[in-house]
Design a binder for these strands. Structure first.
Ligand SMILES: NC(=O)c1ccc[n+]([C@@H]2O[C@H](COP(=O)([O-])OP(=O)(O)OC[C@H]3O[C@@H](n4cnc5c(N)ncnc54)[C@H](O)[C@@H]3O)[C@@H](O)[C@H]2O)c1
Ligand SMILES: NC(=O)c1ccc[n+]([C@@H]2O[C@H](COP(=O)([O-])OP(=O)(O)OC[C@H]3O[C@@H](n4cnc5c(N)ncnc54)[C@H](O)[C@@H]3O)[C@@H](O)[C@H]2O)c1
Lengths: 223, 223
DNA sequence: ATACGCTTGTGATATAAATCACGGCCGGCG
DNA sequence: CGCCGGCCGTGATTTATATCACAAGCGTAT
């Protein structure tokens, strides 16, 4: 049964490798659970133990992993440290990634000071806004730059990820500019279904959508 | 192709109605797109127009809607206002819903002052924290209450939704308390795979998971 | 009235994803 | 050293989800 995997979008159907993207979206969950077991001094874990903590079936975990190789030992399970390292390598989490933020409003400031990205290897290294009153000001450790600087900064700072935190009506335009500047991965907080070319990924963060589908079940609930 | 739908979880397989939960998760998207067309003075829209803005196929939209009834007219499409109203009714969005927040830290404060919930009918009417230094203080228009007050407040204020914004290691415990108090829908910001009974829904908000799967594609990208 | 262009609603079909189930290997133990 | 409990890896199967494709209905134009 489905678990807390995020929703990743692309333009018209496009899967680089032949690994289904649902599988890719589950790998970070495995990394996280492995970190938990590592913290609790486990040396080996079985697919059943992993599955238990994620409310899914052991077979699914084994199948998922089998897309990438053979990491376990029959009768023993998986070496926690090794599997975690392998998965991180597969996902590209064995390095750090630079991101830029567009839209330095309330949400944008919260994102800049959010301490959850850094430990996972994601760094916000530039911030852009359209408001000339903001441009040039310091937010956190960052100076706010005008949108026109996006292409240069993206290139100079090796920025690969764009984070969008502008009002909905400006989000598509901002996303277009990021894509034009060569960004291929976007974390979008605006409540829109962004249109992007097939080689660009968008991860949407939208608490309202989640609430709006839960009310369906609340309404019909028997307690 | 998949679109910005959120990820909703439950305990062991459980679908109240026979409507697949993927369908339920898409309905809020339709509501949102309809709002767009309504704002642009459309009286009627076809499934093709709706699909275009969501990057999906017209057939899928029609199929989804057919789970609930016949809302369109052949040759004409759907009446924007009526379909929006029907979907809102189906989702239970034709009323307002009270929520409580647990964890009044940085994120919790941002949630309280987030202006995106109110217009959609979601109201945060209570806030709880374990820190005695915070209890009793005012945040926004809310007084921070101790966790022990959860059951009473939930009952008194008709709270149906719990929002969890506590550190990961305390999240499961908080969720258990919410469930004990009768909460059946949880918006969880903590990076954990919460364990809940089958009749409880959890919507997870986790930007890091999104980033971590996008890096897979970045790593392998051809530009 | 009738014909026509358009778009729905839906059974049939195709594709995708999850689960089953079992052969094969591991390592410990007698 | 051979047996055994346990668990992986994976083809086969089942289940879920998406798409196709078309009869039927609507409204307009002639
Ligand atoms: N998904 C979530 O959890 C979540 C939470 C809060 C807000 N949001 C969304 O994030 C967005 C921002 O919310 P906020 O509360 O920070 O709003 P805000 O008004 O405080 O900030 C928006 C910022 O974007 C800037 N901006 C506007 N147009 C721009 C453009 N074209 N290019 C660059 N910058 C531009 C503004 O100058 C401002 O600084 C909204 O779309 C909101 O719905 C999402
Ligand atoms: N998903 C997201 O977008 C996102 C963004 C930011 C933070 N987070 C997550 O949200 C959580 C909170 O982050 P933060 O930055 O606000 O942390 P914080 O430390 O600023 O706030 C945490 C609050 O929770 C309270 N708390 C601790 N244990 C509690 C308990 N058992 N019961 C009730 N309250 C308790 C603390 O007193 C504090 O007020 C973390 O899990 C973090 O990873 C998620």
């Amino acid at each position: 049964m489905a678990i807390l995997r995020p929703s990743i979008t692309t333009g018209p159907d496009h899967n680089i490798s032949d690994v289904p993207s649902v599988v890719i979206q589950r790998l970070p969950l495995y990394v996280r659970v492995l970190a938990y077991f590592e913290g609790n001094e486990y040396e080996m874990v079985s697919s059943e133990q992993l599955a238990g903590r994620l409310q899914m079936t052991p077979a699914q975990i084994r199948k998922d992993l089998s897309y990438f190789g053979k990491f376990g030992k029959q009768g023993r399970g998986y070496n926690v440290k090794r599997l975690a390292a392998e998965l991180r390598r597969i996902l590209g989490l064995d390095r750090s990634w630079n991101a830029c933020l567009v839209g330095v409003g309330r949400l944008g400031r919260a994102i800049i000071s959010y301490p959850g990205f850094q430990p996972e290897g994601f760094r916000v290294v530039a911030a852009f806004d359209a408001d000339s009153a903001l441009i040039g000001s310091e937010v956190g450790e960052l100076k706010v730059d005008p949108l026109g600087d996006i292409p240069v900064k993206v290139r100079r700072l090796n920025i690969r990820i764009g984070i969008v935190a502008v009002p909905a009506q400006h989000a598509q335009g901002v996303i277009d500019r990021l894509v034009d500047a060569g960004i291929r991965a976007i974390l979008n907080y605006a409540p829109i279904a962004a249109q992007v070319p097939p080689n660009v990924r968008v991860a949407n963060i939208d608490p309202v959508l989640g609430l709006q589908s839960m009310t369906y079940y609340l309404k019909n609930a028997r307690g």
